[in-house]
Design a protein around this nucleic acid. Structure first.
Length: 259
DNA sequence: GCGACAG
DNA sequence: ATCTTGTCGC
């Protein structure tokens, strides 16, 4: 459960953990990155890396939450990746970063991470501030092979991550009550395992799909998302990252008009 | 074979 | 995701 002193008592990564740099981890992952040549290779990699996913919780605190989102430019040839650091204790935005990257993989349901991860890793190489957990726009374990983009990024960086999708990719579920905080489990169609939660974050509003990415349990993932919500459907880090990339996208578009 | 299908 | 105007409801 939650730490007796509340979610902001100590850094989520622990004293030692915060000494680790997210930027450094991102640079390492970026050097190792290699885009699969085809779906077979991508699928094989997902099955392999999925075994590295851990859904055990670390210290119960999530003061600094980094929201990630992206937008496409130049007819979808390049991607604008944005990161917004949210201080859950002060309820304020600490800083925002952007990065531009080439898109080298097509969008195929179930393989989103191969398309968007490079951009996210690039933005994160600039994050020079402690980060407790990452909120990624998309699924975590709520994926056909249990390896959505939130898991992929979490494993590559070995960092706590939570996946928050605006729609469903995989799994069955009933409709959650239309009250903020209400949720229902998202079940694996064949194994019956709980792979995520369908959470109502705002009254009478479409729910979001929450699932663990890495080093976070489903219960913790739900608590983090709810704690970051501020009256809108999406948790603040993600909502602001969405606005941020949209703003940067239009800025990039006017500077270099679509050919 | 026929749907479903994150962003 | 992106292409696009107005419109219904709290």
């Amino acid at each position: 459960m939650v730490h007796p002193m509340g979610p902001w008592a100590e850094p989520a990564m622990g004293r030692e953990g915060t000494l680790r740099s997210l930027a450094e981890a991102a640079r390492r992952a970026l050097r190792q990155w290699r885009t699969p040549a085809d779906l077979e290779e991508a699928r094989s990699l997902q099955w392999t890396l999925a075994r590295q996913v851990r859904t055990e919780d670390g210290p119960a605190c999530w003061r600094w939450v980094l929201g990630l989102d992206s937008a496409f430019v130049e007819g979808g040839r390049r991607i604008v990746a944005g990161a917004v650091l949210w201080d859950a204790a002060q309820r304020t935005t600490v800083h925002r970063w952007v990065a531009l990257a080439d898109v080298e993989f097509p969008y195929v349901p179930g393989f989103l991470s191969f398309r968007e991860t490079p951009g996210y890793l690039r933005v994160m190489t600039q994050v020079d501030h402690p980060v407790d957990v990452l909120i990624v726009d998309g699924q975590g374990t709520a994926h056909p092979r249990g390896f959505g983009i939130a898991c992929h990024i979490g494993v590559l960086l070995d960092w706590p991550t939570v996946g928050v999708g605006k729609s469903r990719l995989f799994g069955r579920h009933e409709a959650p009550a239309p009250n903020a905080g209400q949720w229902v489990p998202l079940w694996h169609p064949r194994t019956g395992a709980v792979i995520g939660a369908v959470l109502t974050t705002r009254p009478r509003t479409q729910p979001v799909y929450v699932s663990p990415g890495h080093r976070v349990s489903l219960e913790r993932a739900i608590a983090i998302v709810l704690d970051c919500c501020d009256g809108y459907r999406l948790p603040e880090p993600q909502r602001q990252a969405d606005q941020w990339v949209r703003q940067m996208r239009s800025q990039v578009s006017e500077k270099d008009p679509r050919p």
